[in-house]
């Protein structure tokens, strides 16, 4: 007979594991991946493969040679980081090598420098993405025109993104804005993984059903962005007006709330990046505050900031206050 095992109670476990959670997130990203490849062609697939492969490679190298600890690449967290990083960049030829640098920053600086999975204060994929955005502003904002992409062609015709159009404030931009249906399915310009709201929502529903995420962060994030932009839009809806400074015709006012939440990275950010367990608050009340902050900051950055898109910055900023939120938002004690 075997030796008897002895431990304190409990003697059973729910069978949940970090590995399962991470691979569920990966599975939930597949619909967005497929839609991205369908619209942006083989270059999107290449960006994804390169990003994921380099994330795994860097994590393995760092664990093996720098930290000298057993490798944890099997837990799938590097794959999540790789996929999210790839989703956040344009599917262009120059990204094939730039994304490798992003992966190094994401894994090396964003995660392993803090001690690996679970100890990073910021979402690693966003650290990588923001690093690239600041270091390679031209390449990172050169978007392929989705209507002119050839599936197997690597060189692309560039086109605008909806948020870029609004930021330019050109009088003719309003007419070029995509239809709601195109924004839902993802037939718009932008980072190839975040274009399709429907594909992202399918993944998010899967994560909700498997209890990997709770509804609190996505709902409060998207809800806040919707309500805040609705207020702005009601006060001053978008229109073509004359700029009193130089007398030229320009876009004025604020974009409508539906376009706000369907363009840019709000859907992907709210469902997959703000909900990253490591960098978001643990208590439900804290999660609501976190989502509220993300939504508010996103709309502020979009309307008054230098960048057309603010989801990455908003989430990173809220990541930095997560420890404070955790300290403040305690669960309700049973016996007090």
């Amino acid at each position: 007979m075997n030796l008897l095992n002895i431990s304190g109670s409990p003697h059973v476990h729910s069978d949940e594991s970090t590995k399962k959670i991470m691979w569920r997130v990966n599975l939930a990203l597949v619909p967005a991946l497929l839609v991205g490849i369908a619209y942006f062609g083989v270059s999107a697939l290449l960006v994804a493969c390169i990003s994921v492969a380099s994330c795994i490679l860097f994590q393995w190298l760092i664990e093996k040679f720098l930290l000298k600890v057993p490798s944890t690449i099997g837990d799938g967290s590097a794959v999540v980081t790789g996929l999210l990083l790839a989703f956040n960049v344009p599917a262009t030829l120059s990204m094939m090598w730039i994304v490798v640098i992003g992966a190094l920053v994401a894994i090396g600086v964003g995660k392993m420098a803090f001690g690996g999975l679970g100890k990073n204060p910021f979402n690693p994929a966003l650290v990588g993405r923001v690093f690239l955005l600041i270091s390679f502003p031209v390449q990172m904002t050169t978007w392929p025109d989705v209507s002119k992409v050839k599936f197997f062609g690597l060189d692309t015709v560039t086109g605008p993104t909806p948020l870029g159009l609004i930021k330019e404030r050109g009088a003719e931009s309003l007419g070029k804005m995509p239809q709601i249906w195109d924004m839902l399915t993802g037939y718009i310009g932008g980072s190839w993984g975040e274009v399709s709201a429907i594909a992202i929502l399918v993944g998010a529903i899967y994560l909700l059903c498997t209890k990997v995420i709770s509804w609190h962060i996505p709902v409060s994030f998207i809800g806040t962005a919707f309500v805040f932009s609705a207020i702005l839009w009601l006060v001053n809806p978008i229109h073509v007006g004359v700029d009193p400074a130089d007398g030229a015709e320009k876009l004025m006012g604020f974009i409508d709330p539906l376009t706000t939440i369907l363009t840019g990275g709000i859907m992907l950010g709210a469902c997959f990046m703000a909900t990253d367990m490591v960098t978001s608050p643990m208590a439900r009340s804290g999660q609501l505050i976190f989502g509220f902050g993300c939504g508010l900051l996103t709309v502020i950055i979009r309307n008054w900031g230098a960048y057309p898109e603010g989801v990455s910055f908003a989430i990173l900023l809220m990541n930095s206050v997560t420890p404070l939120i955790n300290r403040w938002c305690k669960p309700k004690r049973f016996a007090c």
């Binding site: 075997n2 030796l3 008897l4 095992n5 002895i6 431990s7 304190g8």
Partner: peptide
């Protein structure tokens, strides 16, 4: 002479309270 296999928290102070 090992008679059992301790499978709990790696802490003598705790193991001492278990068995």
């Amino acid at each position: 002479k090992r008679r059992s296999n301790y499978d709990g928290l790696k802490s003598c102070a705790f193991q001492n309270t278990v068995y």
